[in-house]
Amino acid sequence: MTDMGVNPAGKGFNLAVNLGGLKMKNPVTTASGTFGFGPEYAPYIDLNRLGAITVKGTTLEPRRGNPTPRIAETPAGMLNCIGLQNPGVSHFIEKDLPYLREYDVPVIVNIAGSSLEEYEKLAGRLSQAAGVSALEVNISCPNVKQGGMVFGTSCAMASDVIKAVRRSTGLPVIAKLSPNVTDIVEIAKGVADAGADAIALINTLLGMKIDIQSRKPVLGNIMGGLSGPAIRPVAVRMVWQAARAVKLPILGMGGIMTADDALEFILAGATAVAIGTANFVNPGATMDILEGIGQYMKKYHVRDINDLVGAAWK
């Protein structure tokens, strides 16, 4: 621990974790697509205090995304169909990465492709760029026509994507899985065998909403991904299953709003947690959660956060 301010539990308590080779000073990162590229939240929190920053999904070419409305509120949750709008990997490397390099925080770049070749190229490009600490491979986005979820819902395809990325990078590879599958364990095992260093889950659950006045779907893209507290029990269950089935560390996410929620994921087997929708509700959510984890450790004399990982199995 280099900085007291970074460790909310204080001296003698360890919050540092190792996510498949990615060293994080604490287990709290941001969920891709909910935190922009970092500067958006810099007025609200000290980015240096994050365990890592996970940026918006990046593709080889710029993507314009889906038509509006792109968001709809649902019971204790929300649907989104942003459609991976992003300026493309070259823009990211030239314009966004230099900003992030100014901070003392690892950067996880979330990547998405519509072919194996694209994933491979993306991984290659980002591995050459200074300031990228890990790749989170999105094989699970429900909001893009080709690629996206089809990769994440078929075991063979998920493995192929991870193999392709693995071939082209020396960075830690985090496979981000779709919850829209019958058997998460099978996919988790598949990506583990394919060479992933860690597993992130869950991405959003495919859902939709209909306006009874207009009698039409609310979202511009008809369907969208459900996130927020509504999906938390599903996410906790999947983290539990995946963590027990494979040896890889897990980055858990899905509806984490508070430190209590984050601890639930850690107890289920997550080594680190990502905060998504909560940022929209409370721009200081990541810091509040980090603080709360520290307090819990102090209160229950947990010297090392790693002792809590999967503690609910016992």
């Binding site: 697509g33 909910t34 958006e40």
Partner: peptide, 11 residues
């Protein structure tokens, strides 16, 4: 969503 330019909902 966010109101701060992070989520790209409001285009």
């Amino acid at each position: 969503g966010c109101g701060v330019g992070a989520c790209l909902a409001c285009v």
